[in-house]
Design a protein around this nucleic acid. Structure first.
Lengths: 251, 251
DNA sequence: ATTTATAATGTTGTCTGACAAATCCATTGG
DNA sequence: CCAATGGATTTGTCAGACAACATTATAAAT
């Protein structure tokens, strides 16, 4: 029932999608500021010449994308920290997929280590050191130390002082947890592996400590190259078990 | 109007959200398999004892989460490749934020160039070359060539044959568009800048062509370092215009 | 009998109108 | 000045209808 050609949404297949795009654009460009209230559903319907159903569907998309929040009786508001949803395929747990994730991890963590060497604050450096000590502690009492390992790498990402790195690394860590566990629970190779890992970690931390960005990046790159090698060394039966425990990861 | 206590959705504030959770669970547990058709909206409304509006809103959530796709006249289907949504904060358009994005870009594109040098297929290499030619063409007719530039970098990411890279690069490209445009529309520096850019691009492509992964990574790193430098060289009035559109909301 | 056109049916997208539930606001009363 | 209360506003849900498109069954033609 498009009655207002002036503000008619741009062509597209789905009406609600067109409206959602327009509103999204208004938020992205700062035309509507965080915390600000959106026009009422009725008003938006009037403006675009569409029914309230379509407006609701459009707002539902924005809500789902984390751009707005709605409060019954009050209205819909631009989120205080607007987010966009980056839709990514769920990695299947095959060895191939895990290696693709390691490639991404290498890209991010090498650069994160470089930035950390440049910018880490004293307290961030302290936290990195503590995380490294936690790994040793966990290994000594017989645990696999995977959680501590991930916390260590996260501490480095935090020291990069660039939230993009931490956000993406957090996201992918969920899918890597199991893979790392596999390489650690390999009894025969465990001791030599752990010794390698600890030494590689130490090299990264030293470089960050000294503010040597190239050395930090190089140490991180070496660590992740070796991580891939260690994963490939894991016996085939363990890798198959990797396939069995498919993602029970929630959205 | 919950009439069927047997299948009553679990407790929660929003009816549609409860239904969405149930359906999501059914998909995750493999109760509904990829490609399978969901029950019709009317049937779902019947099953849960809710109106079609609520069912539609619930399905809208799943659609937005990438779990299902809907075809008018046909039905809604479980997506072939289920996705998860990574929600990231929207970068504000300040110079500082743009530089943070460039840092992320550097991390990804350096590694993407390395992988592309290892794995690019002949057709992928051809596409990269075409994209590079498109930039020249656009510049010659007086356009800024920003879109073509981004397409060029995307072609390289594709040649890495790792979908994680393309997905993330696509995501942040949206926010870099304006910043790149600023550095390009600077009349006084434009010619020298474009000459630099073209030369840097050529170096990347040559390395990828020859399969020299280290050279490709190095060329990409240099390109992005220079990109940051060029951005900083942009006259202050242009940069301020970049800052002006920023949210000055205190958070 | 096979293929092609046509009709019937089913499904999602959109419109309209109504009411419930929660919130907001202004007036009133102390 | 403050609190309570009532009305107005706004989102959430319900209900029914039609439009647009897809699928399937039926009929027609060669």
């Amino acid at each position: 029932m498009i009655t207002n050609p002036e503000t008619q949404p741009t062509r597209g297949t789905q009406l609600s999608e067109q409206v959602a795009r327009q509103l999204t654009h208004a938020i992205h460009t700062g035309d509507m500021r965080p915390g600000e209230r959106l026009p009422t559903e009725a008003a938006l319907g009037e403006r675009y010449g569409i029914s309230r159903s379509v407006v609701r569907e459009a707002i539902s998309m924005l809500r789902n994308a984390g751009l707005v929040t709605s409060r019954r009786g009050s209205g819909s508001f631009v989120a205080e920290v607007p987010t966009v949803a980056l839709r990514l395929a769920i990695p299947d747990p095959s060895l191939q997929s895990v290696i693709r994730l390691l490639e991404l991890r290498r890209a991010l963590e090498v650069e994160a280590a470089r930035l950390a060497a440049q910018r880490r604050t004293p307290s961030q450096l302290r936290r990195i050191r503590n995380a490294m000590a936690d790994i040793d502690e966990a290994v000594e009492i017989g645990a696999d130390g995977v959680d501590q390992d991930m916390a260590f790498h996260r501490a480095i990402a935090e020291a990069s002082n660039n939230t993009h790195f931490t956000a993406i690394i957090d996201f992918y860590n969920r899918f890597l947890h199991h893979a790392i566990t596999v390489t650690r629970t390999n009894e025969s190779l465990r001791e030599t592996f752990m010794a390698q890992v600890i030494e590689e970690h130490q090299a990264i931390v030293d470089a960050i400590d000294q503010g040597d960005e190239d050395a930090a990046a190089q140490a991180a790159a070496r660590h992740l190259e070796h991580a891939e090698w260690r994963l490939r060394q894991a016996p085939t039966d363990l890798l198959e078990r990797l396939e069995d425990t498919a993602t029970d990861t929630p959205v």
